[in-house]
Amino acid sequence: MELNEWFVIVNPVSGNGKAKRKWQSIYNELKKQEFKFTYAFTEYEKHSIKLIENAIKHGITKFICVGGDGSLHHIVNGIFHHSDTINIKVIKIGIIPVGTGNDWIKTYGISKNYKKAIEIIKKENIFLQDIGKITLANKNKVVYFNNLAGIGFDAHVVNYVHKFKHLGFIAYLVSTLFSIVNYKRSLLEIKFNNKIIKQSSLLFLIGICKYSGGGMQLTNYISSSDGKFDITYLDKINLVTILKHITKLFNGKVTDLNFVKSYTSSKAFVRVLDTNKTLIQADGEIIGTGDFEVKILPKALQFIIP
C-alpha cells in the first residue's frame, strides 16, 4: 500500500451477494476513473476491523466501502477502535452502496448507481459528521454508529430482517409488521436532559442521520453534524395503528403523531428493569442487550458526499 492510495473494502455478501456480482464492473470503473487503489474482500463478520487495522499501520487514510449499512458500520468501528494510532479526522470514507437497505446514503443523496457513486468519491467533497458511541454496561463493550441506534422494538425488527433479506428493502416492512404482533415491551428507565422516563417502552431510537429500516423516517431529523441526537420515544402501538399510519413511517410525518415523542440530546443512559432480553441495534446490526450509555462525538469523522 502507498500513502496516496485508496483502500477498497468489499463485503461480497452485501445485498444478497450483489457486491460480489458487481465487483468486476466496479473495479473496471475505478480504473477508468483513474483511482489508485488496493482492495480486499471481507471473509467473515467484522473482518473489516482487521483490514482497517492493517491499512492504518501502513498509513492509509482514504477508504472506500463497497457494501451496505452494516459494512459501513464495521469500517467505522474499525477506525475508532484504532484511534490511538491515528488522527481520525484525517481519514476519509466514501461508499459504493450495494446493500439491502442503503439507509445512510439517503440522507446525503448518494446514488446507488456505482458509476455515479464513484464520481462522487473522485471529487472528495468531505463532510464532518457526528458519530455515536455506545458503552454496553454488561460487557464493558464499546460500539460506534454513524446512522441510527435503538433499544426495543426496532432492534427486534432488525433481528427478523435477516430472515427476510431475500425480499430486498421490503424485508424491513415485513419484519416491522411481524414484530408488532410478537414483540413484548420492556420496562426501561431512560435518563437524558435531566429527564427520567420509567415505564414499559416499545422503543427508544437514537438518530444521527435521517433514514433507517429501508427508508423509514422515524426521528425528527435536524442535522447530522449539530452535536445532538434526534431521539424518538414510543411506549406502545398496535398493528391497526401502524397500518393506519404506514405512509407516515416513510414520509417523516410519524413524529407529528401525538403518541410519538421527539427530543434532542447529546447523551442518554438506559437501564432495563425487568428480565426481558431487550436487544440493542446500531446501524442495523444487533450489538448486545441490557443497560447502556450513549453519547455523541461531534463532527468526528469525514465522509465523502455529493
Score class of each variant (00 low, 15 high):
F7H: 11
H156Y: 13
C209I: 01
G94K: 08
V161Q: 05
N194I: 02
E53F: 13
K267S: 15
V240N: 09
V90T: 15
T135V: 08
I52S: 06
I280A: 02
S212A: 14
A19F: 08
D69K: 06
L203N: 05
Y108T: 07
H162T: 14
G288V: 02
H162V: 12
I26S: 07
Y183V: 09
Q217W: 00
H74Q: 15
G78M: 08
A268G: 03
G284I: 07
K62G: 06
E189S: 06
S201D: 05
F259W: 12
W104G: 00
T85F: 08
H82N: 15
A117I: 11
S225M: 11
N238R: 05
E285M: 08
F35W: 14
V143R: 03
I170K: 14
N113A: 08
L136C: 01
P97M: 10
T264N: 11
I52W: 07
N146Q: 13
I56W: 07
I64Q: 12
F153I: 03
D226H: 04
K57W: 03
E43K: 13
S212W: 09
T241K: 14
I121W: 07
I88A: 00
K62F: 09
I9P: 07
D283V: 11
N193V: 03
Y263P: 02
G213H: 04
L148A: 10
G168A: 10
K267I: 01
F303N: 07
C65L: 10
E43M: 06
N147V: 01
H245R: 04
T264P: 00
N251M: 03
